[in-house]
Design a protein around this nucleic acid. Structure first.
Length: 291
DNA sequence: AAAAGGAGCAACCGCCGGAGA
DNA sequence: TTCTCCGGCGGTTGCTCCTTT
């Protein structure tokens, strides 16, 4: 038995909002607030709309100080960084971008940022395969057992070998030997020459960001073609995540992410810790080595 | 100039979790 | 403690506009 619908679907208007409806809703909320009950609100003000629809309209368009479009590079960076660290939790990401709504960010990611990253990634992939081809020609008679077992992986389209990130295995060895967190390397499209971790902050975070610090550098390259550090986790670290809503529907949506394996890349090993630490008031401090 | 295809975006849907009775 | 209701969330859909052929 399913849940009862929140409104009588036969008697509510659907589709785009008219200026009149907008005005009605806005003027009422300006004067009285939402009165804490979106479901009852449309009847109160004579709108033939679902309460949820009113809420969405208000939050995404009528609310004061909403920005639309014109995302800055800094905002791109924040979105990318947060997406890589927490997945598609748009409300949390939106909370870091004043004036932006989760819907806007979600659309922006799906229609532009994702393609931007993938486009860049494809380019890098092509360049990389040429490099690879040349290397293979040079080494045509030498078989590298490690490479045979651990193909170079490209982000985000190609499947990622779980062991790259889920365990602290040193991929620079030919066997799956556990290694020190600070020495794990991660091969992405632009980091064939991945560097070792130099960030003490990251190295103090067991499991959560294994290999991710290198990845951050790669993201900067992917987005802007320069080896800059993305303004990501450092600022993320400063965020008061404790006060953010974390009542999303869990990670399932992330797991079903349509473009692939970014989750196996960074999200899945991190989430259990992230989720768990969201409960405590000092979670982010301990994670980011701030205590 | 018209048609087809693609991109962008607003809105809807259904699920989940928290609050309160 | 259980149940119900509502708000919030993320995924998806479908419409509109733009670009390409």
């Amino acid at each position: 038995m399913g849940r009862a619908p929140c409104c009588d679907k036969a008697n509510v208007k659907r589709g785009p909002w008219s200026p009149d409806e907008d005005a009605t809703l806005k003027s009422y909320i300006d004067q009285h607030g939402t009165c804490g009950n979106w479901i009852a609100l449309p009847q109160k003000i004579g709108l033939k709309r679902c309460g949820k629809s009113c809420r969405l309209r208000w939050l995404n368009y009528l609310r004061p100080n909403i920005k639309h479009g014109g995302f800055s590079e800094e905002e791109d960076n924040i979105i990318c960084s947060l997406y890589l660290s927490i997945g598609s939790r748009w409300s949390i990401i939106a909370a870091q971008l004043p004036g932006r709504t989760d819907n806007d960010i979600k659309n922006y990611w799906n229609t532009r940022l994702k393609k931007k990253l993938m486009g860049k990634q494809r380019k890098e992939q092509r360049a990389s395969s040429i490099k690879h081809e040349m290397k293979r020609e040079c080494e045509s008679f030498v078989v590298n057992p490690h490479e045979a077992m651990n193909p170079i992986l490209y982000w985000p389209e190609l499947p990622l070998h779980d062991t790259y990130l889920q365990y602290p295995f040193d991929v620079s060895t030919t066997q799956d030997q556990p290694c020190d967190n600070s020495t794990i390397t991660f091969a992405s499209s632009t980091s064939m020459n991945s560097v070792k971790s130099s960030s003490s902050t990251f190295s103090q975070m067991p499991n959560m960001f294994q290999g991710f610090n290198n990845y951050q550098i790669d993201l900067g390259e992917i987005v802007y073609g320069t080896p800059q550090q993305v303004d990501g986790l450092e600022s993320f670290a400063g965020v008061d995540m404790v006060n953010l809503s974390s009542t999303g529907s869990g990670i399932s949506s992330v797991e079903s992410n349509s473009w692939g394996d970014i989750n196996s890349l960074v999200y899945s090993p991190m989430v259990p810790h992230y989720e768990g630490t969201m409960q405590g008031s000092t979670c982010e401090a301990s994670y980011f080595g701030l205590q």
